[in-house]
Amino acid sequence: MPLRAMNDLVAHNASLADELSDAVMRVLNSGWYILGREVKAFEEAFAAYCGVPFAIGVANGTDALELALAGVGVGRGDRVALVANAGGYGTSAVNALGAVGVYVDVDLDTQLIDASALDRVLAGADIRAVIVTHLYGRLADMAELMAVADRHGVKVVEDCAQAHGASRDNRRAGSFGHVAAFSFYPTKNLGALGDAGAVVTGDAAIAERVGRLRQYGWDRKYHMTLAPARNSRLDEVQAAVLSVKLPHVDAWNARRIALASFYAEAITHPKVALPAVDGTSYVAHLYVVRTTDRDDLAAHLRAEGVPCEVHYPYPDHRQPAAGDRYAGVSLPTTEQLCAEVLTLPCYPEMSDADAEHVAAAVNRWGA
């Protein structure tokens, strides 16, 4: 039976409909809609979930990256190391600050930033910070990457937009770097009913700075002490919604991992490379396979009633908006991945029969 879409958000929210409705009505009836009790309660709960003392709610995940970078002192002209295969969100944040992106190639198997390549980049340029993106729900090897960054005196910003709840050695994504950014876009492992984000950190000074930067640079109302700042505030409705959903994230992640584990066993096509399923360090935000004939596989799957997408087809250093700025940059693994990756459906409300249909359709390709 065909799947309706890559994600079924109606089904995702249906089981919590009464609680979500109550949360929205609680905010409506409170008369307080910006930076009130709901935001404070969610910030405290999410910080505790991540295992850090501080969380600062903001308007969306890209703002969270920008404010996290600003929180560790990145400004105009500073260089920031980052990957180019993660959809451009890090690049957008770097550009918004007037900083300069320095791209680092990735590992073919994990599709995450390559520690050796990062070491070479940090040794060869004056870098202020590095964004470590936990792509597709896979937690990077933060012990190795923090050692590299520490050796060069570079601040680490974790991009956790796709890794809510991913953990290794009982530490969750967001608790390793100097600061971390989360998105709560509706399709995320923890998603709002619109745009929302957060910055988390264990550093009180960074938390205080980000808290001011998200609201005009105020230290008190109408008194601006930091620049450049912005208006980027998590609203009360989204905070209340996220508070309802947060206790369910681990169960949703477990279902995602179970589906990914099923795919790992059931998909046997010799032309399709599958991602490793590494327990809780991979929370399967996206289940991304690779093949050298992606367009043909995608057309076959859609004909079989299986939706699929490409995350992400255009490397940042080859985007038209970059002009010829990175014409001399070569990132062979990044460019290979952007030509080969294809995302299959993987979300908590998928049935076993749905997953079987997807796997069987992949295996029938070319038959």
Rank of each mutant, 00 (worst) to 15 (best):
V24K: 09
T268N: 14
A64I: 06
R255Y: 10
Q319F: 12
A264Y: 06
N189T: 15
D219I: 04
S243E: 06
M6A: 06
F184P: 01
G366K: 05
S167D: 05
Y33A: 11
C50L: 13
A81G: 01
P275S: 10
H269A: 12
C308H: 03
H285I: 09
V102A: 11
F176S: 03
W32N: 15
L112V: 08
L135P: 02
T291P: 09
P307R: 10
S232A: 12
A353T: 14
R325L: 13
K155P: 07
D169A: 15
A147L: 14
C50A: 15
R26Y: 09
D107Y: 02
D141Y: 03
T268P: 05
E38P: 03
T201E: 08
W218T: 05
S183F: 04
V154P: 02
R256A: 01
L112P: 01
A353K: 08
S330R: 15
A264I: 07
M1T: 14
H248S: 10
R256N: 05
H311T: 12
A166Q: 02
A143L: 12
V72R: 00
S330D: 14
P345E: 08
Q215A: 10
V130C: 06
A204T: 04
R120D: 11
G191K: 02
K155A: 15
F46N: 07
D278R: 12
D119H: 14
L9V: 04
V72L: 04
D107Q: 12
P186F: 07
S21N: 10
D316C: 14
W365T: 01
S30D: 09
V27M: 09
H357G: 07
V100A: 03
L112D: 02
L193G: 12
G165Y: 00
A96F: 06
F176I: 08
V241C: 09
M25Q: 13
V310F: 08
L297Y: 04
A361K: 00
Y263L: 11
S232L: 05
G323I: 09
M224R: 13
H317P: 05
L337E: 06
N253Y: 02
V74I: 05
K245T: 03
A143P: 07
S167W: 00
Y287P: 02
R120V: 10
Y312L: 11
T291H: 07
E208K: 12
R230K: 15
H248D: 10
V154L: 08
Y136T: 09
V362P: 02
Y89K: 14
L3H: 01
A227F: 13
L213F: 03
L226A: 11
A23F: 06
V74F: 04
A140V: 04
G87W: 02
G90T: 00
T291W: 03
G197N: 03
E349C: 11
A322N: 07
R151E: 13
Y136H: 15
D150P: 03
W32C: 14
G366E: 03
T343N: 04
N29P: 02
L97W: 01
V94S: 00
R128K: 15
L35F: 00
A240L: 05
G101K: 01
G194W: 11
E208P: 02
P2M: 06
D324Y: 13
L234E: 00
G75V: 13
A55F: 09
A96T: 05
R168M: 08
A81V: 01
A227Q: 10
G36Q: 11
V306L: 09
S261A: 13
G153P: 05
N231C: 11
D219H: 14
R37A: 15
